[in-house]
């Protein structure tokens, strides 16, 4: 089996998949910790559906790069939901539900009515579940993942204390002179960008798992915010790398394999947390 792994690692597109997958998983985990603590766990799902709607519209408009439409639409939706979601007449979860199902339905309708693809169900299936799209990345897309991951990491490193304050106590952060709106917008933009990139890895329907499972696993065994961030990022990288290799060896869908691997890690951590609680 090791020989086969070594053989597959000779292929550039396998290396690209591992690099992009690991980096996307790491950044998703970092952002996922914030989302879980702010009770916005399901926003990944909602935003991924908006991204799907953007993808469908870009397909219909025959854009050369779907990100020209997907990214701005997802960013706008993320800012609206995370910054203004609790202030309007519609509560955060209701607004999320409206965005999510509307974008999904409109996207699927557009693809059916105006499609120029020979295999709509295949395209939709790949986008929703991320079957093998991570193995078809170009070098340009890999570099985009690397740059966005670097930006996310630098943000967390440089503004760690402010992100901590905004996550746990907005009132205190505001009183301390921190510009809440700026950091909320920045976090919303990073989440939107990561979700669009993560669609290649696990597909629209499974993105929430990539963001939530590592954070929840880390919270079972660690109590500090810094420790949870670092540990969540590490286990997310292990989950993504292991999931990609297993899926290639076993010919299983990449996205689902990664999520099942993350689920197994989560269950192990629940058990560890219970044992430590009893000890």
């Amino acid at each position: 089996m090791l020989e086969k792994v070594g053989f597959y690692l000779n292929f550039p597109f396998v290396r690209y998949a591992l690099i992009a997958g690991v980096l996307i998983a790491m950044c998703s985990a970092l952002l996922g910790v914030i989302l879980v603590l702010k009770r916005f766990s399901y926003i990944g799902d909602g935003l991924s559906h908006v991204a799907f709607g953007g993808l469908a519209l870009a397909t219909v408009l025959k854009l050369s790069d779907y990100n020209y439409l997907m990214m701005p639409l997802t960013i706008i939706a993320a800012v609206l939901l995370l910054r203004f979601g609790t202030k309007g007449k519609l509560n955060g979860d209701a607004a999320l539900a409206i965005f999510s199902v509307s974008a999904l339905a409109i996207g699927y309708l557009l693809m059916n009515v105006f499609s120029n693809s020979a295999n709509i169900s295949g395209d939709v299936c790949t986008t929703l579940f991320g079957s093998t799209s991570i193995l078809t990345l170009t070098i340009r897309e890999v570099w985009i993942c690397i740059i966005m991951s670097a930006v996310t990491l630098v943000m967390f490193c440089l503004f760690y204390h402010r992100i901590f304050a905004v996550t746990f106590d907005e009132a205190f952060a505001r009183a301390s002179g921190i510009r809440i709106g700026v950091y909320q917008t920045a976090i919303a933009v990073m989440i939107a960008v990561m979700i669009v990139l993560a669609m290649n890895l696990v597909g629209s329907l499974l993105i929430t798992a990539l963001m939530v499972f590592p954070a929840l696993s880390a919270m079972q065994v660690l109590r500090s915010f810094r420790g949870t961030l670092v540990y969540a990022a590490c286990i997310s990288m292990i989950g993504a790398g292991g999931g990609i290799l297993i899926s290639i060896l076993a010919s299983t869908p990449v996205g689902a394999t990664i999520v099942v691997f993350d689920l197994a890690i989560f269950l192990i951590h629940i058990a560890i947390g219970r044992v430590r609680g009893c000890a």
Partner: peptide, 25 residues
């Protein structure tokens, strides 16, 4: 957290170098 910055950037740079291993495509 700033102390983590250099090793992390080093990790990302090495991953970026890996992506260029071998000829393109």
């Amino acid at each position: 957290m700033k102390k983590c910055l250099m090793p992390v950037i080093g990790l990302i740079c090495s991953l970026g170098l890996l992506s260029g291993c071998g000829r393109a495509g």
